[in-house]
Amino acid sequence: MKKVSQMRAFGSLLSWLYKKPATVDGLFGFIAPASRGFPKRNSDLCTGCGACNERCSSGATSIADKDAIRTMSIDTLRCIFCARCADICPEGALDFTFKSEIPDNVPDNMYFFGITDSKEIPEISKGIVRHICLSHTIDEQSQSIETTLPLQKCPVCGEILPVSEKFLEVVSQRTLEHLQPDAAEIVREDMKKYLRTCISCRREMSKEWNTYPRKFI
């Protein structure tokens, strides 16, 4: 009896001689829809606040200030696609997606991507293929997703502040939104004076501008 079951086991192994091999055709199997895709930054929304840089656990994001320009970049080769920067971004500027590159005619099921030969790759989705085999394209330079933002200059002394113009704009907007109209009027006047000024100028000009602490109750 034991011999019979042994022979059956050997037979089932041998049956692989005429079965189809288990290895996947072509280079890839399938891409699951849960695959997060690549980070994409909407440059119109990004304020350069640096929250993504604070949250990134792999050190893929970086902020570089040079010549009054702030460059926010993500190194896609270092990115581990955890999407925590997208979660934390206060402006919702970051997104992880393939969506803009996927053609409309691809069916919306689990296996939208079963390549058997390079001929069968849809022309539009070749971009996706190149992105996915990052490890294969060593010659290619690391792709970085960059956004450049002008930095704020102090209107008094001309010193470059470590914040972008857009960030201050958004900050003042948000602050004013939550204030009473009469208080907002005073704050707007104050902000015009000192929000974009550097610290030393603010101290020097405080008497002239009369920006002592106010109480809005």
């Binding site: 199997g29 399938f30 699951a32 849960a34 695959s35 997060r36 696609f81 689990m110």
Partner: peptide, 8 residues
């Protein structure tokens, strides 16, 4: 494959 479907 199952894990990839869940988490990508």
């Amino acid at each position: 494959d199952s894990l990839e479907v869940i988490s990508g």
